[in-house]
Amino acid sequence: MNLPIPIFIAASVIKSVIVLFVLLTAIAYSVWLERKVVGRIQNRWGPSRVGPFGLLQPLADGLKFIFKEDLTPPHVYRPLFLAAPMIAMIFALTSISVIPFGNSITVGGYSIPLQITDVNIGLLLILGITSMGVYGVALAGWSSNNKYSLLGGLRASAQMVSYEIALGLSLVGVLIQSGSFSLRTIVDQQGGHFAGFIPRWNFFHGQFIGFFVYLIAAFAETNRIPFDLPEAEGELGAGYHTEYSAMKFAAFFMAEYANMITVGCLATLLFFGGWHGPLFGPPLMQALLPVFWFTVKVVCFIFLYIWVRGTLPRLRYDQLMSFGWKFLLPLAIANLVATAIAVVW
């Protein structure tokens, strides 16, 4: 980091504002994409009235959430009831800060990395932040003072703690291969090709089991179908956010989508080569193409999320727990041992 301090601060502020704006827009439009795609899967149109293709639907939803009555039930534990959506939201938005979106760009002679901050323990930082995100859900369930909310919160914390282990272990394989916690270094090592045409991504570099373990654990971490037991509407009302209304409810919703995007970014960076992709055209296009490839990969990942949501039914709770502990965890450990042996060989 050899930038002068004022320029460093200015660049950081500008980057933070842009990333936050893009992230919030992406959250809004992944909700739109989800409604649209799930609509088509179920043979209906999805949002189509507000704007062309229903593209202004997120704006309408946002306005609706702001103007709805914000009800705080009388029996809740008020401080934590108010804090829980904020906790969920803060941790969901913070983890994007160490995600690199592309290589450095050069502005006025200064090389500025396309990332809010490049820390050399980037991956651990993301794991730490996501592990703190459990509190939002758990405290929301507890402070609502409602049996359905409490059950939802308990399920959420048990599920997230269980699958976090498999998630962490599935990433260790990639770490052994790259020998670094820095997301930028991990991506840099995935440039180039095998045999001239297969990209040198970790997914093709022996980590496909690691990727599938990561994928399944990530679905559970973000409480998405088929692992959305914390908010199973058939048995728990709406789970941990039963008692929440208006913008507080929207905060949980946005946190879930922000987590989805973070998990998609992480999968792209660790297993699918980050911003690497074919580069061609004039210099400006060459500078923008890496960010484009990164975005395309993340959107594919989010589409996969929506596809699975439209396809699979929800698991039973005991199936969820035995799958996580008796199948996914041993598989992750086996993958870890195999990778270690292959690297030392």
């Binding site: 730490g128 592990s131 703190m132 758990a138 308990l154 914390s157 048990a158 703690v161």
Partner: peptide
């Protein structure tokens, strides 16, 4: 990750 994330989640879990 370990203390603030995992161990304290278990504390909160047990209290809940």
């Amino acid at each position: 990750i370990v203390y603030a994330g995992a161990i304290m989640v278990l504390f909160v879990f047990v209290i809940m």
